[in-house]
Design a protein around this nucleic acid. Structure first.
Length: 881
DNA sequence: GAAAACGTTGAG
DNA sequence: CTCAACGTTTTC
């Protein structure tokens, strides 16, 4: 460690890595306490690592300790021994800052960004900590100005200094500063796998650095990775995915959007691993196609938006756009309806209205709003193909040099790294852009440029917004960012998400639905990207996909043992386990520091007449996908569109692969509702997410594996109100017990008889092999339960209903909605039990063979004394309000 | 590999 | 000085 202190100019990491045995952790910087002390003493001469401290401003910092998490329970204040000395999980700072005492290594002064207004000046005067050599300096104090510094926007005041960058060092070997805050959590995905890092087989990954928020004006000092290379990677990835055998799974029942199949019937659905890699060589193939050029839309508004100076190379822009475009499609955010009831929404009316028209008009709206981008993107397509030669293999910055296109050479001087190299595709990407002035600049510039100019860069966007969503995107994202996230990414690049063989099925991927590529042949085309692609929609679309007409599902056809024609693809597990865990080095980037602007600045220097509030009204009508497009329009829009209000509910339903960037994008938006149904999310990922979404109220995990869902057993989700675990493979009584039982802690004072899910009001257990044992647990541990979905639960009987409505149970009074459809062991007797429920409003007994209409009529008659019920459908009883 | 433990750092 | 908790090592 001491060595590293003064090893600024040495490739300490690289050298040591090579000589070190693969499994042996390399010496750490300030590892042992003793060494830490020494470092401290010698600090000032070199990059001694300064411990970061919480920002005290982020959402996490502003929270109070939950008192329930692992670390809280360790605290003495909560009766623990105080040995762990860790921050509450809910209070893990997302933007740890340099300590106040940090000073510039060169001039010995603190950050002085507050003394100037100009953003570039601010950057030059702020303290920047190098993630490689740990030196903290003012960029202005550096003598090497021609070298590129790589700003890491994952952390405030973090970069790869010009010296290290110039020396070819990368951050891969060394975890950047500030990682601790999220890496010590139980099951943390941020823990860095050393094996991976040490692996020398892997090609050199791309440098790890991101454009920083504050780097707004540092364009010249930043570098960007070759667009060519990344494109190649992307293509490789996508190609690969497409080549994946198409897998399908049994059709799902359409009843109330319930999945109709049993996963166990699907042999393919077993274990899922997110980052499996595929070693097979992949042919590069160009996939992009122009879809629908929306040239007709060219809002003048956008053109008027004032843009910032843009000196970047055209190819650079090109790359960014391309990336942006691709990224959009990966994520299918849904802000809406499914959760609207559970979550307070300031703009309920508007939102509902928006939802209604989302599928139709909203998309158009978005197009209009972002049309300039769209137009140019399509125009740019040609550029890509010409300048970017797809190639497979690991990517690295040096690799960029291989492509010597003039554009690239040109871009060399003013390169900056793409946001997280692949982040772009996800949420994270959008946020990145928002936080990345550079991006904004670029976009703005494009807008302001004369038509000739701006048209070109925008080409891709066109495809993007219109439908370029290719399956590859997700993987793509991973690939690109992989280098940064992981040390051994090579594999990664070549074989992006193997995880999802299912991709074959690609039906899941909304992206594909809109894709106009070859992939289309394999995939159905659903408007999943339009923001309204919830499970129900998806299922409906899926039904159509088979023969072009809506598929009529009958719950009666449901039969777990019968192989069903696979219509609905499900994320399939990869065969080979991932070599490395992607999450490891992923850090949540801090939200934008500065408040969003109130108005747009136009070219003429005037402020646009519409204020932020008005724009927000407009944005509130846009689906997430379109918001992502809008976020690329300009910095102001970027900020506005990332407002949490617009992202209350995020859906990754059937997203075949969940990437770290997606996860970080989710965290930054802090949704109250999250739909991860039918995804391949891993336990680690889910645990990571849950631990960072303390405000989560709605969590949909239907169709996920029990392994993943079991993350709920160890994570705290105090505000969770709606939990959907229907059709979770392997979720039976024993697992329900694990899920519901209070944490076991034998330490004195640590007993808590309350379940982690004690606040759940809406529980969806359709399709599970649970028995009365589970129901007893539910009654015991979910006192607030009002809605219970037990449809397709073949073990549910009249006795089950008896238990739920027995005297002394909380459910007897709290239950308002019960779904027992397709529970063939339920009879009319159950209806007599429901008479005991004081609050029951909705009883769904559809397709229960042993329930008769006479029984329902009798129920209505007998209840009429106190409450009026009606049959709104066969065996579907509803209270008349 | 994950969790626990711990010395020290940083804020107030 | 105390307290919180970072970043690492140690233990399981």
């Amino acid at each position: 460690m001491a060595m590293s202190l003064s090893a600024d100019d040495e490739d300490y990491d690289s050298d040591s890595e090579q000589s070190r045995p693969p499994n042996r952790p390399k010496p750490k910087m300030a590892t042992s306490p003793a060494s830490a002390v020494k470092l401290s003493a010698s600090r000032g001469t070199s990059g001694a690592r300064r411990r970061r401290t919480r920002c005290r401003k982020c959402e996490a910092c502003l929270r109070t300790e939950c008192g329930e998490c692992h670390f809280c329970k360790d605290m003495k204040k909560f009766g623990g021994p105080g040995r762990m000395k860790q921050s509450c999980i809910m209070r893990q700072c997302i933007a740890p800052v340099l300590p106040h005492t940090a000073v510039c290594l060169v001039c010995g002064e603190a950050g002085k960004e507050d003394t100037v207004e100009d953003e570039e000046e601010k950057f030059n005067l702020m303290l920047m900590e190098c993630s490689i050599c740990n030196e903290i300096v003012h960029p202005n104090c550096l003598k090497i100005k021609d070298s590129n510094g790589l700003v890491n926007d994952e952390l405030p005041n973090c970069w790869e200094c010009p010296k290290c960058n110039h020396a070819g060092k990368t951050g891969k070997q060394k975890r950047g500063p500030g990682f601790k805050y999220a890496s010590n959590l139980p099951g943390s995905l941020l823990k860095e796998p050393r094996l991976n890092r040490d692996s020398k087989e892997e090609p050199e990954p791309l440098p790890l650095a991101l454009p920083a928020v504050m780097a707004t004006t540092t364009v010249n000092t930043l570098t960007t990775t070759s667009a060519v290379k990344r494109k190649a990677e992307r293509e490789v990835t996508s190609k690969k995915n497409e080549e994946e055998p198409q897998r399908k799974r049994p059709p799902l029942l359409a009843l109330d959007s319930l999945p109709r199949t049993r996963l166990e019937d699907n042999p393919l659905r077993k274990k899922r691993k997110l980052f499996d890699t595929n070693d097979e060589p992949i042919m590069l193939k160009k996939k992009k196609k122009l879809l629908k050029p929306d040239d007709q839309f060219s809002p003048k508004l956008l053109q008027q938006i004032k843009t910032e100076n843009d000196h970047r190379e055209e190819d650079e822009r090109q790359w960014d756009h391309e990336e942006d475009v691709l990224s959009l499609d990966n994520m299918h955010f849904k802000r809406k309806n499914e959760y609207s009831n559970e979550v307070p929404n300031e703009d309920t009316e508007e939102e509902e209205a928006a939802i209604k028209e989302r599928d139709g008009t909203t998309h158009d709206k978005a197009k209009v709003l972002a049309s300039p981008l769209l137009r140019t993107s399509s125009a740019r397509e040609g550029d890509h193909s010409s300048s970017n030669s797809p190639r497979a293999g690991p990517s690295s910055d040096t690799g960029d040099g291989q492509e010597k296109s003039s554009a690239q050479l040109k871009a060399r001087h003013q390169r900056r790294r793409l946001p997280n190299k692949g982040l772009s595709k996800e949420l994270g990407q959008e946020i990145l852009k928002m936080e990345d002035p550079l991006n904004n600049q670029k976009h703005s510039a494009e807008k302001t440029e004369n038509n000739t100019h701006y048209r070109r860069p925008l080409k891709n966007e066109d495809s993007v917004s219109n439908q370029n969503c290719k399956p590859m995107k997700t993987e793509d994202t991973q690939n690109r960012r992989a280098p940064k996230l992981e040390d051994s990414v090579a594999n990664y690049h070549r074989q992006p998400l193997k995880i999802e063989d299912c991709s074959g099925n690609q039906n899941h991927s909304p992206v594909k639905a809109e894709t106009g590529s070859e992939a289309d042949e394999q995939k159905p085309k659903w408007p999943l990207n339009n923001g309204s692609s919830d499970l129900g929609d998806w299922l409906r679309h899926r039904g159509r996909e088979v023969n072009g007409t809506p598929r009529g599902y009958s719950p009666l056809c449901w039969n777990r043992s019968i192989p069903i024609t696979p219509i609905c693809p499900r994320p399939l597990p990869r065969r080979s386990p991932p070599k490395c865990v992607q999450m490891e080095r992923h850090v949540i980037r801090p939200p934008p520091i500065s408040p969003p602007p109130d108005r747009l600045l136009l070219n003429d220097g005037e402020a646009h007449m519409m204020r932020r509030e008005a724009w927000m009204k407009v944005f509130s009508h846009l689906p997430h996908r379109d918001l992502c497009v809008c976020m690329r329009v300009c910095r102001a829009w970027n900020r506005w569109c990332c407002d949490k209000i617009l992202w209350k509910h995020i859906s990754l339903n059937r997203c075949k692969s969940i990437t770290p960037l997606m996860l970080s994008g989710i965290i930054r938006r802090q949704p109250v509702g999250l739909d991860l149904s039918w995804t391949n999310i891993s336990k680690k990922q889910l645990s990571w997410l849950i631990n960072r979404l303390p405000g989560l109220r709605v969590l949909l995990l239907s169709g996920c594996s029990w392994v993943a869902v079991s993350a709920l057993c160890t994570s705290s989700c105090p505000l969770l109100r709606t939990l959907d675990v229907q059709w979770v493979e392997g979720l039976k009584d024993a697992q329900m017990r694990d899920l519901l039982s209070p944490p076991t802690d034998n330490r004195p004072g640590q007993l808590d008889n309350r379940s982690k899910l004690r606040n759940v009001e809406d529980l969806r257990l359709a399709g599970l092999d649970i028995t009365d044992t589970s129901l007893c647990l539910i009654i015991r541990y979910m006192p607030l339960l009002s809605k219970l979905d037990l449809s397709y639960c073949n073990h549910v009987t009249d006795q089950s209903v008896n238990i739920l409505t027995a005297a002394g149970t909380t459910t007897r009074d709290s239950l308002t909605d019960i779904n027992l459809s397709v529970c063939n062991r339920v009879t009319d007797q159950s209806l007599t039990y429901f008479k005991r429920c004081g609050s029951i409003c909705h009883i769904d007994l559809r397709y229960c063979k042993q329930v008769t209409k006479e029984g329902c009529d009798q129920f209505i008659a007998e209840m009429s004394v106190s409450v009026q019920f009606e049959l709104i459908e066969d065996k579907l009883l509803q209270k008349i309000s």
